[in-house]
Simulated assay, not measured.
Amino acid sequence: MTPATPAPFNYAQEGATRRHPLPTGYGHLHEATHLGHGRAVLEAAGEAVTTFRMHRAAGVRVRASAPEAAPGVLVECALGLGPARVLAPCRVVWSEYDSERIGFAYGTLAGHPQRGEESFVVEMRDDGAVWFTMTAFSRPGRWYTRLAGPLVPLFQRVYARHCGRVLRRLANESR
């Protein structure tokens, strides 16, 4: 899972999930889920996001070249079963671990069904409320995602909401 030279991203706007507005020419996703309140929720949710535990608990098979998200870490996500399994190779573009904000973004590599970037960020606001936000920009990268057309953004939104519910459970079960 660790190549000698990193595979290039299959899109040009590396790191753009950290900036706004998101790049034009892509579909955009921005889904926020309230997780709870306080430092314990922030830390539990941040750990679940950055160790890919949230992804796994949401039903995604994840192989990563390191146990925690950091720039350069390769991540391969797989959805589906058997011959219907879709592999999605990515590489972590950026990560953030500070007192109020924890998360990362990965960008798509050759072979991914989409082209673009997706971020997973947990942050504690001034009032102590903890929120999870998934932000993405993407466009079809394979024939079958082009063929699926408007179903892909619908699936992405459903998946983002599912991740938010899963993360809320994970962040609050240890309290």
Rank of each mutant, 00 (worst) to 15 (best):
C77I: 03
V62F: 11
Y11W: 06
L170M: 06
H37E: 14
V62H: 00
A136H: 01
E100Y: 06
S119T: 15
L79Y: 05
G72R: 00
E43F: 08
A148G: 11
A160F: 05
R115L: 07
L74H: 09
Y11F: 07
C90H: 06
C163M: 10
L109N: 07
R63Y: 04
M124L: 14
R61K: 08
L109D: 11
A136F: 05
T50A: 01
G111I: 02
E14P: 12
E173K: 15
A40N: 13
R19M: 12
H34K: 14
L81Q: 14
A84V: 13
F104T: 03
A136C: 09
H28E: 04
R168E: 03
Y11R: 11
R139I: 07
H20I: 15
R39D: 14
H37A: 06
P83D: 03
S99Y: 07
G107T: 02
G141T: 09
G103E: 08
V130Q: 03
G111H: 04
M124F: 06
L81E: 15
V49A: 04
P140D: 04
M1S: 11
Y97E: 14
A110D: 12
E118V: 06
M1I: 14
N10W: 07
A7K: 06
R91M: 13
A70S: 14
L167K: 05
V152N: 05
F52S: 08
R139A: 07
P21A: 02
T145N: 12
S95T: 09
F137M: 09
A64M: 06
R175P: 05
V86P: 04
Y11D: 13
Q114W: 13
V60M: 07
P83V: 08
F132M: 02
R91S: 03
R161M: 15
G46A: 01
R125H: 15
A160W: 11
S119V: 02
E96F: 07
P3H: 10
R115Y: 00
T135L: 08
M54L: 10
R161C: 12
D127C: 04
A148F: 05
E14K: 11
W94M: 00
G46I: 01
S119I: 02
A7W: 05
I102T: 03
Y97T: 08
P113Q: 02
P140V: 10
Q156N: 14
G103Y: 00
P113H: 12
P153H: 12
H55S: 12
G80F: 15
H34Q: 15
N10T: 09
G128P: 04
R165A: 11
R169G: 09
R19P: 04
G111D: 10
F155T: 10
